[in-house]
């Protein structure tokens, strides 16, 4: 399928094979990976498996969209994984330990995510610390907070309490619907992801603030001299990043039905890889939500297939690392 377009493109310009691979490499890779797993694995092409892949993709995508925002303003947010964990614990605690209803259960983790974002922007925008180091620090601190709060134990239905009794609340159905429910046969979390993808895509591509986000990241000095309040936009970006990480944490808690400590750690790497793979999709050359979606689809399909092939999760990290290196190399090649 790819063959004819390559030859057409070749006539126009010499380095067009590379260019074609750059623009459509991710899509091609997704197709190749699906085809390969489909042929080698019996149970790959099943409704259950696909719905499983989509559910796991939905969390990665939410987190990766947050990362995309921080990348757009030329920043970086390493703390998203910890924020996912924090949100997971927070919603589980609200349900199980404090018997809260759905509203509070959703509100508390989201507000915590926003608070992490504000903390990050305080460090990066106000105190002018380097983004990588500042968010590395918050990543550890936030992880410590959720571990300290739970003393290292997961939160689950009917868990025993230190005073001898059992936990008063439980995961309520309306909360579990987020991660486990279906609408017309489609997982609710996938619908949520699609709504978020479309909304953020439209926001970033077609609205004034969306454009100012990009301008802030592309050339901060020019943006400042054009009268754009660059620090305000950078603050927004970290807050949005924290918010979406928390949303991802809620979906995660709902999907597994427990509040597992440090459950979000792996989403940092997956999200970063998805966002960077997204740079190249359709030749955008910059962080973008649609690209991020395809990036996380690639990651999700790949990891699912590897799991089914019984590749242990620690070996999967090697492949994740290699993919991130590849995506980074591609995005740097494009810049030159």
């Amino acid at each position: 399928m790819a063959q004819p377009s390559v030859s057409i493109a070749k006539k126009k310009q010499m380095p067009s094979l590379l260019e074609f691979l750059y623009k459509h490499g991710t899509l091609l890779a997704i197709l190749v990976v699906i085809a390969y797993f489909g042929i080698t694995l019996d149970r790959f092409f099943t409704y259950e498996n696909f719905s499983d892949i989509l559910r796991s993709i939905s969390i990665v995508t939410l987190v990766a969209i947050g990362i995309t925002f921080s990348l757009i303003v030329d920043g970086f947010d390493l703390s998203v994984g910890s924020t996912v964990s924090l949100a997971t614990i927070a919603s589980a605690a609200a349900l199980v330990l404090y018997r809260q209803e759905i509203l509070v259960t959703l509100l508390v983790p989201l507000l915590l995510g926003i608070a992490v974002g504000l903390l990050n922007s305080l460090l990066i925008v106000k105190l002018k610390l380097p983004d990588l180091l500042a968010t590395l620090a918050t990543m550890y601190a936030i992880n410590g907070v959720q571990l300290t709060y739970t003393k290292g134990f997961s939160i689950y239905n009917d868990m025993p309490l230190p005073d001898g009794g059992t936990a008063p609340g439980k995961f309520i159905p309306s909360f579990l619907f987020i991660g486990q429910g279906e609408v017309l046969g489609i997982p609710f979390s996938v619908l949520l992801m699609l709504v978020v993808v479309i909304a953020t895509h439209l926001f970033l591509t077609y609205t004034k603030p969306g454009r100012l986000f990009y301008m802030t990241g592309e050339n901060r000095e020019a943006a400042r001299l054009s009268g754009i309040p660059v620090n305000r936009y950078r603050t927004y970006a970290y807050v949005i990043s924290g918010f979406f990480a928390a949303l991802g944490g809620i979906v995660l808690a709902s999907r597994i039905g427990t509040g597992q400590v440090s459950a979000g750690a792996s989403f940092l790497m997956d999200g970063v890889a998805a966002a960077y793979i997204g740079f190249s999709v359709f030749g955008a050359g910059k962080p973008n939500v649609i690209g991020t979606l395809f990036g996380s689809i690639l990651m999700g399909v790949l990891l699912n297939g590897l799991t089914m092939m019984n590749v242990p999760y620690y070996a999967q990290d090697i492949i994740k690392g290699a993919i991130l290196v590849g995506a980074l190399a591609l995005s740097h090649m494009q810049k030159k």
Partner: peptide
């Protein structure tokens, strides 16, 4: 360095204000 958004179009650069 200070005046342009190099990765953007002429249009986007002209209409920023």
């Amino acid at each position: 360095k200070q005046g342009l958004f190099l990765d953007e179009t002429v249009r986007t650069n002209l209409t920023v204000r």
